[in-house]
């Protein structure tokens, strides 16, 4: 994992109008690692994620995947760049006019030469992974919020991208499903060397999956801590960071 980083964020500043949201963040995500973005509510985690996937243009600075800038790359190169990652949005963002199966088949249909039989089998397997095979023909509006989230992860994984961005994947899931999801993330990262960038609040999940975390501070708009979660819990200089990690430290120690 010590080789060249897959994602590089260089001095990125984000603003909404006059409001400074993120101030000159610089960090790297190594290939194959599970990278977790942490922070209190409203500190700009989702904003950071949306900048990393190129939805928002940063006020200053640059974000690169390998050597291609997410900010400035245009045209066919940008299409190729975008296909290298999958994104799961906080609310799921499934297409409301399609069934779950069709939602997952869509990227396979558009970007590969797989036949219908193959596409549907892959989509069913992905749905099976997240425990939704029985709901393949349901519309998104007919399933619960947690299920939508799981289906969204299945869709993000449809093309087996190199990088998966997950915005609060386990929020709103029951502990068992959340734990299975964590297992899945670890398995995918280990066997397929997929890089994960995860925004989450769930401490058990952080301890279980995170190779490295960064923690954003809502006051200074900068990174206040970076490293291994267990180390940060025990040794970080910042009291707030230690507090954050110790909230459910007991659970983590047992796992």
């Amino acid at each position: 994992m010590q080789n060249k980083p897959i994602i590089t964020v260089e001095g990125m500043t984000a603003r909404y109008g006059d409001v400074l949201v993120l101030d000159e963040l610089t960090f790297e995500v190594a290939r194959g690692e599970i990278f977790v973005i942490l922070g209190g509510s409203g500190c700009g985690k989702s904003t950071l994620l949306k900048h990393m996937i190129g939805l928002y243009e940063p006020y200053a600075g640059d974000i690169k995947i390998d050597d291609a800038s997410v900010v400035t790359t245009q045209g066919a190169e940008r299409d190729a760049l975008i296909r290298r990652f999958g994104v799961m949005y906080q609310s799921g963002a499934l297409f409301g006019s399609m069934t779950l199966l069709e939602n997952i088949c869509l990227p396979l249909e558009e970007f590969t030469d797989l036949g219908k039989e193959a596409r549907e089998l892959i989509a069913r397997m992905k749905l099976g992974l997240v425990g939704l095979a029985d709901y393949a023909h349901h519309m998104p509006s007919a399933i619960s919020g947690g299920m939508k989230k799981r289906a969204a992860i299945a869709r993000a994984m449809a093309l087996d991208p190199e990088i998966l961005f997950l915005d609060e994947p386990s929020a709103g899931l029951d502990p068992i499903t959340a734990d299975e999801l964590d297992e899945l993330i670890i398995q995918l990262s280990r066997t397929l060397n997929i890089t994960f960038v995860v925004v989450t609040h769930e401490l058990p999940s952080i301890y279980k999956i995170a190779d490295r975390v960064i923690m954003l501070d809502a006051r200074t708009k900068k990174i206040i801590a970076e490293g291994d979660p267990a180390e940060l819990r025990d040794t970080c200089d910042n009291e707030w960071v230690r507090d954050f990690f110790n909230r459910k430290g007991g659970v983590a120690n047992n796992s």
């Binding site: 069913r124 397997m125 099976g128 992974l129 425990g131 095979a133 393949a136 398995q187 280990r190 066997t191």
Partner: peptide, 18 residues
């Protein structure tokens, strides 16, 4: 082994077609 482990993630029962 890695791939065999992956294949174990997909037991037939989890995505059977009704």
């Amino acid at each position: 082994d890695d791939f065999a482990g992956m294949l174990d993630l997909y037991p037939e029962a989890t995505f059977e077609e009704q």
